[in-house]
């Protein structure tokens, strides 16, 4: 289509051969980007002047976070543990549920294409929904507290792990599966012995990776009342008690660091 609007230029070589030079997309792309930028500046009210004049406020806040309020630490343990519990439970249950869901979404195992497409669509929608939004909805149903956060993480984990898992299953080697089906195993049995071993290491590794990310998400879920340390964060910022915010962020950073390294260690062992 592009070639029709911007006709390729003809170049004739000295020996008479003709080459069609494709028009470069670059100027068009740059123009679109420029227009989009101007438009965005307009819509968002972006102003360099405000930044220059008031950016110091940002650093004032940052400055007040240091030194952090160490005395606040004892009050942090409980919410911090809640955050970890939420992500652990949500990830574990989510990863377990993801397995049957992924099977339902694999076109090479499930013969009904309607089921497969519906499950895939639902997974995409679930994956797209930001965790904070599903946590917010969950607080309305399950009340304020860790339960809502766990549900949000649970749902996201299903969507994330199941997507990567069904891609794996669909790309798995089917020879053994077909052989087993032909000697009379049920589809589930054939899956268990022929495909599951192929995708297992990746499944575990994906689940661990998802857990890592979930710890980060879980830390802010408290902001919408879904339990964990996020509640204290929003309190600290609301009351402008930045030294408290500082210590929370520090503890959070350390926790995330430890969990990421532990999980990375095990993931490397898996693959």
């Amino acid at each position: 289509m592009f070639d029709k609007i911007f006709v390729p230029k003809k170049i004739i070589l000295p020996n008479g051969k003709v080459v069609l030079e494709k028009r470069s997309y670059t100027p068009l792309i740059l123009l679109i980007l420029l227009i989009a930028t101007i438009f965005s500046v307009h819509i968002t009210g972006f102003s360099m002047e405000v930044i220059v004049k008031r950016i110091k406020e940002f650093f004032v806040i940052l400055d007040q976070m240091i030194p952090p309020n160490w005395e606040y630490t004892p009050k942090l343990w409980q919410p911090l543990m809640d955050t970890i519990k939420m992500s652990l439970l949500g990830s574990a249950l989510g990863a377990i549920v993801a397995l049957p869901v992924a099977i339902l979404a694999s076109s090479n195992i499930i013969k009904s294409s309607i089921v497969v497409s519906i499950v895939k669509l639902l997974l995409s929608i679930l994956r797209t929904l930001p965790t904070l939004v599903s946590a917010l909805i969950a607080t309305f149903i399950f009340g304020l507290g860790t339960m809502a956060g766990t549900v949000a993480i649970f749902l996201f984990t299903i969507a994330y792990v199941a997507k990567l898992l069904y891609e794996q299953i669909e790309n798995a080697n089917m020879d053994a599966y077909e052989a087993m089906e032909s000697i009379g195993l049920t589809r589930i049995q054939a899956f268990r012995y022929a495909i599951f071993p192929q995708v297992l290491p990746n499944y575990l590794s994906t689940s661990l990776f998802c857990f890592e990310g979930n710890v980060r998400y879980a830390s802010i879920l408290g902001y919408v009342g879904a339990g964990g340390i996020g509640l204290l964060l929003s309190e600290g910022i609301g009351w402008r008690n930045y030294a408290n915010v500082g210590i929370i962020l520090l503890m959070l950073a350390i926790t995330v660091f430890i969990i990421e390294n532990l999980s990375e260690h095990f993931r490397k062992k898996l693959v």
Partner: peptide
């Protein structure tokens, strides 16, 4: 992993979820 799992089970609290939760779920 199992011990951690059991430990984290306490994150489930259904006491906050009254009958209103179900109504809201239906409404949503």
């Amino acid at each position: 992993v199992f011990v951690l799992f059991i430990w984290s089970l306490s994150a489930i609290q259904l006491n906050n979820m009254g009958t209103s939760g179900l109504t809201i779920a239906k409404n949503i």
